[in-house]
Amino acid sequence: VCQVIAMYDYAANNEDELSFSKGQLINVMNKDDPDWWQGEINGVTGLFPSNYVKM
C-alpha cells in the first residue's frame, strides 16, 4: 500500500470507480493493471486512472 496525490479532479463513470478532487491523498491498494489502480479514500474503494495521480 502506498499513497499518491491526485493531480486532477476525477468523476467516476461507473459504480466500481473512485471519484476524487485535485490534491486529495489516495491510498493505493492494487496496481495489477498499469492504467487503472484500485484505491481507497475515507473508507471508499474503487478504480481510478493511474495517469491522474503522482507519487
Rank of each mutant, 00 (worst) to 15 (best):
A6C: 05
K22F: 05
W37G: 01
L18H: 02
N27S: 10
D9N: 11
E40S: 14
Y10I: 02
W37L: 03
N42S: 12
T45N: 09
Q3S: 14
M7S: 15
Q3W: 08
L18C: 03
I26D: 01
G43W: 03
K31V: 15
Q38P: 02
L47E: 06
K54Y: 07
G43E: 11
D16V: 08
V53Y: 02
P34Y: 05
D33M: 06
N14V: 07
K31Y: 07
V28P: 01
Q24C: 05
V28W: 00
Y52A: 09
W37C: 02
G43A: 10
N27Q: 14
K22G: 07
Y52H: 14
M7W: 04
Y8F: 15
M29Y: 04
K54T: 14
V4T: 08
N42Q: 08
N13Q: 15
A6W: 00
V44W: 05
E15G: 13
D32K: 13
N14G: 12
M55R: 08
G39S: 00
M29G: 09
D33N: 11
N14D: 07
E40C: 11
S19P: 05
Q38T: 11
G43K: 15
L18Y: 00
G23M: 03
L47G: 12
L25H: 10
D9H: 12
M55A: 15
V53S: 05
F20D: 00
V53L: 02
G46F: 01
V28M: 05
F48N: 00
F20R: 00
N13E: 12
E17W: 03
Y10R: 09
N51L: 05
Y8V: 10
S21A: 14
G23F: 03
A11E: 15
I5A: 06
P49S: 04
G43P: 01
Y8Q: 08
G23P: 00
C2Y: 14
F20N: 00
T45R: 08
Q3Y: 12
G23S: 09
S21M: 10
Q3T: 10
F48D: 01
L18K: 02
P49T: 02
F48C: 04
Q38V: 11
W36V: 10
Y10L: 03
N13R: 15
V1T: 15
G46T: 01
Q3K: 14
V28K: 00
I26W: 00
Y52E: 04
G23R: 04
M7I: 14
E15Q: 14
V4M: 11
D9K: 04
Q3C: 09
Q24A: 13
N27F: 07
D9E: 06
Y8E: 13
N13Y: 05
N42M: 10
Q38W: 03
K31C: 15
Y10V: 03
K54Q: 10
L18G: 01
A12S: 09
N30G: 11
N27V: 07
K31H: 05
Q3A: 09
N14S: 14
D35K: 09
C2L: 04
G39M: 01
Q38M: 08
M29V: 13
E15Y: 13
V4D: 02
D16E: 13
G23E: 07
S50A: 10
P34R: 12
I41E: 03
Y10G: 02
V44G: 14
M29K: 08
V4F: 13
D32L: 07
K22R: 06
L47I: 04
T45C: 08
